[in-house]
Design a protein around this nucleic acid. Structure first.
Lengths: 200, 200
DNA sequence: ATTGCAATGAGACAATAGTCTCATATATGA
DNA sequence: TCATATATGAGACTATTGTCTCATTGCAAT
C-alpha cells in the first residue's frame, strides 16, 4: 500500500521519508549517482518502501539535493549599515559559490535530473526551484531607490544568469577557467550590470 | 571484435558510425531519451555493434547532439560593412536561440549527460565542447581596436555566460520567463557589458 | 573465384529501475 | 489490552544498460 495522507501515522511516515532523504544526501556527496537499492539499504528500509515515497530515483535525488544548505538572507548580509549594492550582490555570489563547492556532486545530479524532466503542459510544476532571486532581491533592497522599478526588475533577472549554478557550469565545463578567474569575471559583470541599471 | 583503426575497412566503419549517430539524432528530436536498443534498431544494426562504437548510451547521445547544426561565423555575419559590436553579438545570440529552439530536446539530453560525466584527473578531456567562444570572438573581431586586450578577453568570457544554452535554462526553467522577455533581458545585458568593456 | 580477416549478429548474462502482489508487523484509537 | 487500519517487507516480474562469447557475413587483396 502507498502511504496515505491521513493524520493516522504521520510521524512514522515523516520519519521514513526523512531517513530516505538523509541516506540519499549522504551517498550523493561523492558525486556518484547512488542506486535506489543502496539508498534504501542505507536508510534501513526496503526498496518497495522507497518507491512508496518517491515516484522514481531521480525525484528522490532532486529532493535530497534541495535539502542541502542554502544560505538565508539573514546570514548573508551583515547587520550594520548596508554596504554598496555591488558589494552586497557579490556577497550573494560568494554564498552560492561556497554552497556549490561543498555540494558540487549532488548539485550536478540535481541539475541533470531537472534538465530531463519533461514538461507537458504549461501549468505543471516548474522544473526548478528558484532560490537565487529572493537573495538577489534582498541584496538590492536597501538601494531600491537608486533604480527605476523596471530597471531593477531587469537587473535582478540578469544577475540570476551570473550567480547560480549554471554560471559555474559555464566557467568550469565550457570555458575551463579556474576559480579565481571565474570569480574575477563575475565580479566585473556584477559591477557592470548594477552600474548600467543605475543609469537608466 | 571491436572495430580497429586500421585503414582496412574504414568506409564501412564510418558508415556504421554515421548511421548510429543519425538514428540517435532522429529519435532524440522528441526530447525523450531513446533506448540504445531503439537506436540500434533504427540504424539497422545490432545492439552489440552499437556498443562497439560508443562506450555507453550517453556518449552516443552527446556525440549525436554535437552533430546538430551549429551556425558558422561566415553565415552569421553579413558580408558588407560590419555593424556595431553590440548588434553583431546580438546576431550570435539569435543564431544560438534558433539552433536551440530547433533542438531543445536533444540539447537537454546532451547537457544532462555532460553534467554527470565524472571528472577524474585535471588532464582528461573537457566535459563540454565550447562552440560559443569562437563565434563571440568573430563578432567582436572588427572592433577589436575599441577594447584593451585584457578587457576584450574578459568581455568574451562574460558574454559566454549569457549566450549559450545555460542562459536559456536559467530563463526557462528557473525564472520561467517567456521568450520575448528573455530576449529583451539578454539584449540589455549584452549592451551593458560591451559598453562597460569599452570604457576600460 | 577463393580466402583471410575484420565487422557484424545473436544471444547469454549480471545489475539496476520500476511495478505489483501478498503476507507481516506495528502504531494507535477504542 | 485488543482490534484494525496502515506502513512495511519480501519477492516475482519486466525492461534497460552494459559486458562477453562465439558463430557468421562479407569486403578486399590475391
Amino acid at each position: 500500500m502507498a502511504p496515505s495522507r491521513n493524520p493516522g501515522r504521520s510521524n512514522q511516515r515523516r520519519r521514513t521519508r526523512k531517513d530516505l532523504l538523509d541516506a540519499a544526501a549522504r551517498l550523493m556527496r561523492t558525486g556518484e549517482k547512488p542506486s535506489l537499492e543502496a539508498i534504501a539499504e542505507e536508510a534501513l528500509v526496503s526498496r518497495a518502501t522507497a518507491y512508496r515515497y518517491f515516484a522514481n530515483l531521480d525525484d528522490l535525488l532532486v529532493e535530497a539535493a534541495l535539502h542541502m544548505s542554502m544560505p538565508e538572507p539573514g546570514t548573508v548580509f551583515p547587520a550594520g549599515a548596508p554596504e554598496d549594492a555591488v558589494a552586497r550582490v557579490a556577497r550573494v555570489d560568494d554564498a552560492f559559490d561556497e554552497m556549490m563547492a561543498a555540494n558540487e556532486g549532488a548539485l550536478r545530479l540535481m541539475l541533470a535530473s531537472a534538465l530531463q524532466r519533461t514538461r507537458s503542459g504549461p501549468d505543471d510544476p516548474p522544473r526548478r526551484q528558484n532560490r537565487r532571486t529572493p537573495l538577489i532581491e534582498a541584496a538590492l533592497e536597501p538601494w531600491r531607490g537608486q533604480f527605476k522599478p523596471a530597471a531593477l526588475d531587469r537587473l535582478v533577472k540578469a544577475l540570476a544568469l551570473v550567480i547560480g549554478s549554471e554560471g559555474m557550469i559555464v566557467f568550469r565545463d565550457v570555458l575551463t577557467l579556474d576559480d579565481a578567474e571565474a570569480k574575477a569575471i563575475k565580479a566585473w559583470v556584477i559591477a557592470a550590470l548594477v552600474e548600467a541599471a543605475r543609469k537608466e
